[in-house]
């Protein structure tokens, strides 16, 4: 059963109350409905992580890497429970046992999007919170997404934008953050990607570009407690060096470390018949060295 916290209550997060004074108070949520265990500690160190619904493979990897370190070190990850960027942030936090708050754009009794029921459960199971300013089964609407964004930004000391296109919801969250005087972090992406244009704009406007979680942790004045090794191919390479594999595989790994490529592009690059390349790619995939997503190959 969902419970609620009134704005007059002691339990109402202070950081949000203060933030909303910047706006007109009448716009603030008078009542926050929630599911899960309401513990004021969870609001102490909140980081909002938002990103495009059309998150790229790169964006997902980057989100996982940074959120895992931040959440494991005790930072609460706040996001909007949408698929794509939000979902990646919540899942990464849940997976490393960190706390996360999902601010819903719909009524508290609705799970939206419904395909993420499993994640919803996991958030609650790991001591996270589900929050909404709407009661019952209120359907999400275009404006409720934007309203939700002000809570996401208001709850957090800093906002991390993982990937965003121009004129996207993530930039709306960032603009609220700016109004509230919050710190904004952005993950730099390839300039050719559409979902890097928004983060690029933020960086130009003064957001801090980050390459790992350390910058965020410094901001929160927290020390890194856990570091996940992400460079898997080292083991793969050492196996290659011992001469167990073909040189084509070595070439592929070497190339993919720098950028993800399509099979056709690699065939052209290495001047090998695509049949032979396909064989190598399949075998490497089976060994777990590389992965394939939307036609492109990546180092695992």
């Amino acid at each position: 059963m969902a419970e609620a916290v009134e704005i007059t209550s002691e339990k109402y997060p202070k950081i949000l109350k203060v933030a909303l004074k910047e706006l007109q108070l009448s716009l603030g949520p008078k009542k926050l409905y929630y599911r899960g265990n309401w513990d004021e500690k969870i609001f102490e160190n909140c980081l909002a992580v938002v990103g495009s619904r059309r998150l790229t493979y790169y964006g997902r990897k980057a989100t996982e890497q940074i959120v895992t370190q931040a959440a494991a070190s005790g930072i609460t990850i706040v996001s909007g429970f949408m698929y794509g960027g939000d979902e990646a942030a919540h899942s990464a936090a849940v997976k490393c046992g960190g706390k996360t708050i999902a601010v819903m754009p719909c009524g508290i009794d609705l799970i939206h999007p419904p395909s993420q029921k499993k994640l919803y459960r996991e958030i609650l199971d790991t001591g996270g919170l589900i929050i909404s300013e709407y009661p019952g089964f209120t359907q999400p609407q275009t404006f409720t997404y934007i309203q939700r964004d002000r809570i996401v930004a208001g709850l957090s000391k800093a906002v991390l934008v993982t990937e965003a296109a121009l004129e996207s919801g993530s930039l709306i969250t960032a603009s609220y953050a700016k109004k509230f005087g919050r710190k904004i972090f952005a993950i730099p992406g390839p300039i050719t990607s559409e979902v890097s244009q928004g983060t690029m704009k933020l960086i130009k406007e003064g957001a801090e570009p980050i390459a790992d979680a350390k910058d965020i942790l410094d901001f929160f004045k927290i020390t890194l407690k856990f570091s996940k090794k992400t460079a898997l191919p080292a083991s793969a390479l050492s196996e290659l060096r011992r001469g167990k594999c073909f040189t084509l595989e070595e070439k592929i790994i070497d190339q993919l470390k720098r950028e993800p490529l399509k099979a056709d592009e690699m065939a052209r690059l290495f001047a090998v018949p695509v049949a032979q390349l396909g064989t190598a790619l399949s075998l490497m995939q089976l060994k777990g060295f590389i992965n394939q997503d939307n036609g492109k190959y990546y180092i695992n």
Partner: peptide
Amino acid sequence: SVNHMAEALQ
């Protein structure tokens, strides 16, 4: 052979 099967998997 292994190679044929690996290519098929593509």
